[in-house]
Write a protein that binds this DNA or RNA. Sequence first.
DNA 1: CGTTGGGTTGAGCGCTCTCAAGTATTGTGG
DNA 2: CCACAATACTTGAGAGCGCTCAACCCAACG
Lengths: 248, 248
Amino acid sequence: MPNDNAVIAPQDCADCPIRHRAVCARCEADELDALEQIKYYRSFEAGQTVVWAGDRMDFVGSVVSGIATLTQAMEDGRTQMVGLLLPSDFVGRPGRDGAAYDVVATTDLVMCCFRKQPFEKMMVSTPHISHRLLEMTLDELDAAREWMLVLGRKTAREKIASLLSIVARRDATLKLDTVDGPLVFDLPLTREAMADYLGLTLETVSRQISALKRDGVIHLEGKRHVTVPDFSRLMEEAGDDSDGGMLA
Amino acid sequence: MPNDNAVIAPQDCADCPIRHRAVCARCEADELDALEQIKYYRSFEAGQTVVWAGDRMDFVGSVVSGIATLTQAMEDGRTQMVGLLLPSDFVGRPGRDGAAYDVVATTDLVMCCFRKQPFEKMMVSTPHISHRLLEMTLDELDAAREWMLVLGRKTAREKIASLLSIVARRDATLKLDTVDGPLVFDLPLTREAMADYLGLTLETVSRQISALKRDGVIHLEGKRHVTVPDFSRLMEEAGDDSDGGMLA
DNA sequence: CGTTGGGTTGAGCGCTCTCAAGTATTGTGG
DNA sequence: CCACAATACTTGAGAGCGCTCAACCCAACG
């Protein structure tokens, strides 16, 4: 069990890759200094569980790099992913002791954590933090509601196309890519994780990915490396109107 | 078209039925006075649309009485309900011009509205408001994620039982009922609206309600009046563990 | 090499959808 | 008061999509 929950060396907030998108985005220099006092980094290996649902959670924090998932499970084992946490996304809920969901690192993961008590105090004294958190929470709520449409009403093929277009879009914004050319990216999730996100079985995920490949909507190299020659085609397959969501 | 979007007589916040649960819950007397300056009431009849997705929305507000729904539609007509708005729930998003979803009154509805500009100014100057809004938004996000499990992983029968237990629970807390005895309530939704909430067809909703009735999980008088003789039985049918959520 | 984890593909089944007919209730006009 | 329509709901029959179960492929790794 190497390097478990490793605490890594502190880093200057000014150099932080998520400085202008995370919960601290709106903070002034002096506010950042205060945050810097209570922050610490933790890193996790792909596959590690960050927190278990129901466990006490004495910190909150931001994803700095890597990807984590929020999942919910029924007693009989059925599992639904309820959140995909990307760099700058916030983990934990101020004002609550226990974690509501399992948080799992699906890739190697670095988090910038704050002990909960001091963070909650800072929220009261620092409107920049709580306003930014409100804004981020409203965005997450919108994303969750978008996803409810996917889960409730889309076909398996549309679900896969929806997931691919979300990952493609995120990747494009990270890389500041132009939207026109072919998009190329790696799937950050296993077939099983995709199934848990989409409310499908992994076999159905595999079949529909094969079908999209057969129909030329995507190209695959290996299992994870995806090329999307025509993004608007993918959007059609997702059942969204062709250019609705590229702005944001 | 009688009484369309009627503006009704102002009411004192002190007497407001949602005074201690809405976005104003944490406000002091002087803050309430300020809110009172910018508030106005609007009422809607069952079936009326409050706002259309994409339309400019120049107000935000709280549901005072009645029930509204948030729904999202695809071009081909498939529809997914993404929110069920009960008294004290908040409508609208500060910092955004357009409505993201259709808001429809499913029963007669009274809303306490605030013009958006003044409300946004008050949010900045009144932490009690933005903190309460953050708290409510986090609760809604949790509810949305719970619902993702229902949509993604539950069977039709479990979906119906989940909806019934949510309505029953809400009704019990409103009436401050004891939890033990049989629960009695009216369904606030048509079969079609239930179908849109659950990601089912209305026929499947009807069949599963009949099945739960046949199996003695519920009793029906007419189409809408429901009696639940044994709540824990209903929870089992919903696939939740028997007593997880009664506290909150 | 054998093992393991992730992925693909096939065959058959069943849950939910689609299409369709029928019931109950309410409101409307003659 | 009745005929009629409209709305909400129920129930049936058949079809299809996605699930289950199972075999198999492939790359990484010891």
